[in-house]
Design a protein around this nucleic acid. Structure first.
Lengths: 137, 137
DNA sequence: ATCGATGCAAAGGGTTTGCAAGGTT
DNA sequence: AACCTTGCAAACCCTTTGCATCGAT
């Protein structure tokens, strides 16, 4: 695999990379840990998962996500995926990804306005999805 | 004070409300706790602060903020303040508040597009401010 | 007098760390 | 062989909770 950003390449890291690349949803450390066990990666340890996740971020394979969802640190795959933000249903937890060029442009405008050079942004819209709205008046 | 949303009104709560209304910056539970001690509010306890913060949110006096900043739960005063989002310098931690009607409108458009009814949003722009940029090439 | 709020201490849960043992280069 | 990773367990930190007491209505 393509992840020599200065780190060594162990079996566990390989397995973790495979796992996160295959996960479609957003995940946290424990999700990865449980998936590793399910695959019988012998003795994969939760501490190792915690130690490796930041490396995968650095390598550009995953990125943090879903900040508004409270405590847990969530990630999503970033490798070969276009940029997007999230629309989250507060009723059922449904996550929809969206991307709007116009918003991106305005964000840069705002930053420039204040003398900032924009590097990242977190943008999450919370609301109620159609199904939840029709379910509860 | 104007905070009878169904809760009782104790001395500690009164003091806490005063503190958070006077704080200008973003703050966490411990900031409030230390400020209470500084003011010699006798024996104000950290557990009480943790218990009271959600009540102040419910009462519309404060609101959670700065989600991308990692672990700690931060708040800011919301009482009689217009809506705004944050532009944060990753170099020095400077926080600038901004508000752009156009972005707000686009957010609602996006939500509606996907059948969502928008209730809240988190929008944080991260970058480097002017001083930090000139300090480090 | 009743019911909720507080102090205290202890538990809780996710995350991090020190160290010895095992892998990678 | 040198150095990095891992497993393990213990430490950490912020936050929450149980319980007896104190305070508000």
């Amino acid at each position: 695999m393509l992840r020599e950003k200065g780190q060594r390449f162990s079996k566990i890291r390989r397995e973790m990379a495979l796992v996160v690349l295959e996960i479609r949803r957003h995940f946290n450390a424990d999700d990865v840990f449980r998936e590793l066990r399910r695959r019988n990666v012998r003795g994969a340890h939760l501490a190792t998962v915690y130690r490796t996740l930041p490396l995968l971020v650095q390598a550009g394979i995953i990125q943090p996500a879903l900040f508004s969802s409270g405590e847990r640190t969530f990630y999503e795959t970033s490798f070969e995926r276009p940029h997007h933000d999230h629309l989250i249903c507060t009723g059922c937890g449904l996550v929809v990804e969206f991307e709007l060029e116009a918003i991106e442009r305005l964000q840069h405008d705002v930053a420039r306005c204040h003398g900032f050079e924009l590097t990242r942004h977190f943008h999450e819209l919370l609301g109620e999805c159609g199904s939840c709205r029709s379910a509860s008046p």
